[in-house]
Simulated scan of single mutants.
Amino acid sequence: MTTADSHNGRRLTARGAKTRARIVAAAADLMYVKGVGNTTLDDVLAASGVSKSQLYHHFEGKDALVRAVVDHVGAHVIARERRALGRVSTIRGLRRWRDALVQNSALQHAAYGCALGSLAAEVSDQDALARQTLFQLFTEWRDLLAGVLQRMQVRGVLPPEAPIDQLGTGLMAALQGGYMLAQTARDVTPMATSIDMALAHIESLSSG
């Protein structure tokens, strides 16, 4: 059985795909904790347990590996957000979503911020392909939030004139800004406050 390597077009055996996935997972974990710039290929080799020849068989260099990490992290985050938001249609549901994200950040003492946001901060000015992928991922995440608001609108919770796309963008901005403030403070309180302010604004538009 073979699978496609989306970055170089090669077909991978099941064993090759497993090796590639191990490299990407190890790199993603390291880059989340240490940052992209502070993670070397030698770090990835040590963490993944693969040989240098195996790594270069799958990735021509660090830039290619970073793009694979963006894909990997993005797939994980979007899948999580689909599960969390896919059927939400109430303010109460959005508050449960907020609570889960804040609690997860608290478990890490708010140390590492948003996995996608951290990648965006480091690579957007360095790699146009990675930046475009990140833009698409953030757009998809925002659209999931806008989908919740649209369902609220359909149910009559939000008025017909409520600016759904703008509210979705504002909620995403509150989330990402909250992540950054929490990361620098090592305290989830600013994150919770930021999201709460956005949700309070949305609730203020409620038709009752």
Rank of each mutant, 00 (worst) to 15 (best):
V123E: 04
S207N: 14
Q166D: 12
T139C: 10
M191R: 09
R95F: 02
A4D: 12
R98K: 14
A100L: 12
R11E: 15
L41V: 06
K18V: 14
Q136N: 11
R98E: 00
V44C: 01
H57W: 00
G170M: 12
R22F: 02
A192R: 15
M1W: 07
L12A: 11
M180L: 15
V102L: 04
R20Q: 15
A68G: 02
V123D: 04
M172I: 05
Y56M: 08
A121M: 09
I91E: 00
H58W: 02
L101M: 06
H72M: 01
G113M: 05
A111K: 10
W141C: 06
W141F: 11
K34S: 12
D43K: 05
S89T: 03
R155P: 03
G177H: 11
D165V: 13
V24Y: 01
L55T: 01
T13C: 14
V36L: 14
D187E: 07
R80L: 07
G16W: 05
A130T: 03
D63V: 05
G35M: 06
N38D: 13
E140K: 09
E161A: 13
T133P: 07
A162C: 06
V188H: 07
G86S: 00
D143Q: 14
R155F: 08
G117K: 08
T90E: 07
S6E: 13
G74I: 06
A84C: 04
R98H: 10
T3H: 13
Q126N: 10
Y56N: 13
L171C: 08
A75I: 00
T19Y: 00
A21H: 12
N104K: 13
T13E: 13
A130I: 00
G86K: 01
P190V: 10
I164F: 04
Q108V: 09
V123M: 08
Q166N: 11
V73T: 12
R82H: 07
W141A: 14
Q183L: 13
